[in-house]
């Protein structure tokens, strides 16, 4: 178990643009960190730097309190799951899983036993003697996962390890990863595009964009108090609605703000309710299971509302959307930073 400390990391690929622009991140020993961000923002690059597979020209990397910039990957005690699996094609699943153990001098019987038990967790037992070419994408991904799990590393780097699994398997694996983390107490850095994964696994979430770290905090803080409009829109499904605050009925706050309304703080009503509400018209509705997702048009702009099926408005052309202004977030329309209204409203 080791902490990781990144100080002002910059990275540009040879003959390429700058990918990371001064990222600083302090990860505690045993912490579970999830990195999210749009495609191409530098998540994999950051993992490769921590792993030691690439070198950064600027900044320091400390692992377990020691400067690690010049440490070879083998000497960092890190297990890594690659975004594109990187399975050894000439080895069976068993050999793939046990290779790292073999290199560390574990006896054959012992490492086969370990491979067996890892395969059991990952539901790969019947594929142990197959080569990667004879596996489906999801099975390959689980082998990649198993290769890391078999090792008792002090740091795990996982680059979208569940992206290719079906829903049921993904939920099982999510639990397994959480369990693995609890058992090993290892530090985990996990990249994902799936926000449910991010919110449910992370001790802290790092949100990145264009090579910058935008916010690094607990999931509830990220969700309730996002640093800016981008973070607010990135986490939460369906995503937050943004409307000009001046368009809201009864708005008395300062000008130049954008209000962020999560779909769950909105509700639909057939008659004008007593609290603040906007008249609306339905453009489209989507079924999501127990709930319906309603895409509506209002004088303030487009709004997406989540409503249970029995609350569906009868008249799709005319109904009301009520909101809780206390639960809304506000952002500076110019630069997107979140504005704390209780502070902004002080005379």
């Amino acid at each position: 178990m080791s902490g990781i400390s990144l100080r002002d990391i910059r990275k540009a690929y040879v003959n390429g643009p700058q990918v990371l622009h001064g990222v600083s991140l302090d990860i505690q020993p045993g912490e579970f960190i999830v990195i999210v961000g749009p495609s191409g923002c530098g998540k994999s690059t950051l993992l490769r730097l921590i792993a030691g597979l690439d070198r950064c020209e600027d900044g320091t990397i400390e692992i377990g309190g020691r400067r690690a910039n010049d440490l070879a990957p083998q000497d960092r005690d890190i297990a890594m799951i690659f975004q594109n699996y990187a399975l050894y094609p000439h080895m069976t699943v068993r050999e793939n899983i046990a290779f790292g153990l073999e290199l560390r001098g574990m006896k054959k019987a012992e490492r086969n036993e370990r491979a067996q038990s890892v395969a059991k967790i990952l539901q790969l037992e019947s594929y142990l003697d197959r080569k990667p070419a004879a596996l489906s994408g999801g099975q390959r991904q689980r082998v990649a996962m198993g290769r890391a799990m078999a090792r008792n590393a002090s740091i795990f780097l996982m680059d979208e390890p569940l992206s290719n699994l079906d829903n049921a398997l993904r939920i099982t694996m999510r639990t397994e990863i959480k369990e693995l983390h609890r058992q090993l107490g290892a530090t985990m850095v996990y990249v994902t595009h799936d926000q449910t994964e991010a919110l449910s696994l992370a001790d802290r979430i790092a949100v990145m964009k264009d090579g910058h770290l935008l916010q690094f905090d607990r999931p509830d803080v990220i969700y309730d108090r996002p640093a800016n409009r981008f973070v607010a829109s990135f986490l939460g499904s369906p995503p937050m609605n943004f409307v000009a605050a001046d368009m809201l009925p009864g708005w008395t706050g300062p000008h130049g703000l954008t209000a962020g309304l999560r779909p769950e703080i909105l509700s639909v009503h057939a008659e004008k309710p007593s609290k603040a509400a906007l008249p609306a018209r339905m453009l489209l509705s989507e079924m999501t299971g127990a709930d319906m997702l309603l895409h509506c048009e209002s004088p303030a702009g487009r709004l997406t509302v989540s409503a249970s099926r029995q609350d569906m408005p009868k008249d799709k052309e005319q109904f009301w959307i009520a909101f809780d202004l206390d639960r809304a977030l506000f952002f500076d329309s110019e630069n997107g930073d979140r504005v704390d209204l209780s502070v902004a409203m002080q005379p």
Binding site: A51, L53, A72, P73, Q74, I78, A79, M80, F82, N84, A86, L87, Y88, P89, H90, F99, G100, L103, R104, R147, R151
Partner: peptide
């Protein structure tokens, strides 16, 4: 694919082991 070398390094291989266990068989 170079990522195979990298996976082996992460697994604890030396460059000679990468040559002998990954590159040569492939």
């Amino acid at each position: 694919p170079k990522v195979l070398d990298e996976a082996a390094y992460m697994d604890g291989a030396t460059s000679l082991q990468v040559l002998w266990r990954i590159i040569v068989p492939l």
